[in-house]
């Protein structure tokens, strides 16, 4: 059983988790503000849909006001353009400024996983070696399902390839788009077949996984997390550890939703900047914030001073 799941949490961590959940809810409401879409069973068709939101939020969700970057990347990859500079640029900008703070505070699917993990059931501890190997899976998903297969499955230079990640894997699409739309739309219900059953099975597996393993999808499968992980090491928003203050008590490791060795990996690619470690640190050795080039860069990463 994981060290992470404890019934008694420090008040500071509970306060922090409440604040983060509020932030996540507001972000989810902001990205899915077309409320009548849920009642009418149709999607938003305004011009804002050409803008990519920086998180995994399906554009088939009835409330979605923007485009999902992963879906948009595959849509362009499957078109005559074959590669999307627009989506890459958007993700580079967000990644360089925020890194995986977006995963920790803004992603609606991350929020759903956080809530699932709160269900009071015994938690699974993934052995460290297996955990580290499985983390590479998301890069394979990004490369194969998002970047390569939409191009390789196109019949000719002008034909559209399938968005393989959306079609065969994405549980967010099933949860946010598929289920709400099928509930309200008879013709879509009749059209649903094996593929929908497959996607529901994937969603169920991810839901069950998220109940027992914290942020399972983010850790092992999310292609967007894989992209942001590349920027996390040098993003403007950083966590930092004051090694002189750190007593090595290990409380930070016990609450990390990504199961990181916080003292070693706080500036690495896998940290989602959720701030749980900062909230529980009794020595106040962990800090976070935007570190612009002339505002205390050395303080941001004591390893490099």
């Amino acid at each position: 059983m994981s060290r992470m799941h404890r019934n008694i949490k420090p008040p500071a961590l509970r306060r922090h988790n409440r604040f983060r959940l509020l932030f996540q809810l507001l972000a989810a409401a902001f990205f899915n503000g077309y409320v009548q879409g849920f009642f009418k069973g149709r999607i938003f068709t305004g011009k804002t849909k050409l803008i990519c939101v920086p998180v995994l939020n399906c554009y088939a969700c009835p409330g979605a006001l923007g485009a999902c970057p992963v879906g948009a990347m595959q849509a362009v990859a499957g078109s005559r353009h074959r590669f999307s500079f627009f989506v890459l640029g958007t993700l580079m900008l967000f990644g360089t400024v925020c890194g995986r703070l977006l995963c920790g505070f803004l992603c609606p699917f991350g929020m759903i996983q956080d809530l699932l993990y709160r269900i009071p059931l015994p938690k699974l501890h993934v052995p460290r070696r297996a955990d580290q190997l499985l983390r590479y899976l998301k890069y394979a998903v990004l490369l194969i399902f998002v970047l390569l297969m939409p191009v390789l499955t196109a019949d000719g230079p002008l034909s559209a390839g399938d968005p393989w990640f959306c079609k065969y894997i994405c549980p967010a699409g099933t949860l946010e788009g598929g289920i709400p739309l099928l509930l309200k739309n008879e013709s879509l219900r009749q059209a649903a077949g094996f593929l929908f059953s497959w996607k529901c099975a994937v969603l169920l597996a991810v839901i069950i996984g998220a109940v027992f393993v914290s942020r399972m999808f983010c850790r092992y499968l999310c292609p967007l997390g894989a992209i942001y992980a590349l920027f996390n090491r040098f993003a403007l928003y950083q966590m930092h550890l004051d090694r002189e203050r750190c007593t090595g008590c290990g409380k930070c490791d016990a609450v990390c939703p990504m199961a990181l060795d916080v003292r070693q990996e706080i500036t690495g690619g896998e940290c989602i900047r959720c701030g749980a470690c900062k909230a529980v640190c009794p020595a106040k050795a962990i800090g976070s914030g935007m570190h612009l080039p002339d505002t205390g860069e050395n303080h941001a990463d004591p390893e490099n001073t």
């Binding site: 999607i43 011009k47 485009a67 640029g89 099933t174 649903a192 059953s197």
Partner: peptide, 29 residues
């Protein structure tokens, strides 16, 4: 720069076209 290149190549049109229709692949149809 990438965003500008993408806009000049007309990628926004592809994205908008895809995003304003119900993505059948996304929902599993």
């Amino acid at each position: 720069i990438c965003i500008c290149i993408g806009i000049l190549r007309g990628e926004c049109g592809v994205i908008l076209q895809k995003a304003v229709k119900i993505c059948l692949e996304c929902i599993g149809i």
